[in-house]
Amino acid sequence: MTGALAIQYLVAGLTYGTIYAVVGMGFNIIYNTTGIINFAQGEFVMLGGMIAVSLHAILPLPLAIAGAVLATMVVGALIELVFIHWLSRPTVLRMIIVTIGISILIREVALLIWGHNVRVLPYFTGNEISAIDLLGARISPQVLWVVAVCAAMVALTTAFFQWTMLGRQMRACASNQVGAAVCGLPIRRLVTLSFVLSAGMGALAGCVVCPITYTQYGMGTGLAIKGFTVAILGGLGNSLGAVAAGLLLGIIESFTVSQLPTAFKDTVSIAILLGVLLLRPSGLFGARVATRA
């Protein structure tokens, strides 16, 4: 493999990797405040792309994207308020099953609204054939958009959790819910907020990748599996770990495709990640905490 070709695959891997990273972070935000693994996470990405495509028919692109992100945030809030809010102390088993059910329902509704066809947004800058030269590899400007937007999201969320009052409250809620409640924090509202935040992130990611990967009603399942894998590998609850694991997964996948038939893309990456999981159950970047039974 020549250097330029290797860079080409690396960039393709990074593009997918940033999406996995954002989905993985979405898992973490909800997991942190509620202890719930939200399997409908991938559906937020799909909804973002789909709604943006539909809105773009009547609105300019930036407004369509903003509208899509807002609409998906509303969906996130509704999921929490309708299904999750009034359950007190649900078991892990029960919550996994409920969110899987919700993801199927969202997918079916999307199928009803948008049908089987793939939908696509125009390139944000340039078009399908414009490319930037990077060390001999040809990079689409949209790839830069994806990487930049996702990196900005990661940076902003990290800053939000680190330095804002609301972010700190959510972290307090994550580390000790009872303690946070005793201090007078509005736990229920923070939980709803975590769903809204995570839905918004997924939707924005869905909009920026739409021109490259296209959006189809069923794309959420695959993303949810990848995002979940990434979240666990990064150490559940560790957002920067999820980012690193996401990029790694994207790159492994991209180089797998260069050597093996496309059908094995998922096989190799997930097998490697499962292997890592078995050796380091707390994840690549998680603290070695007592997760053993």
Binding site: I96, A263, K265, T267, T291
Partner: peptide, 22 residues
């Protein structure tokens, strides 16, 4: 199965994906 919580869901989901694509 020595681990608690979500790990089995993850591992069996991964296994399912692998068998399907193989």
């Amino acid at each position: 199965l020595k681990l608690k919580g979500h790990y089995l869901a993850m591992a069996t989901l991964g296994l399912g994906t692998i068998v399907y694509s193989v």
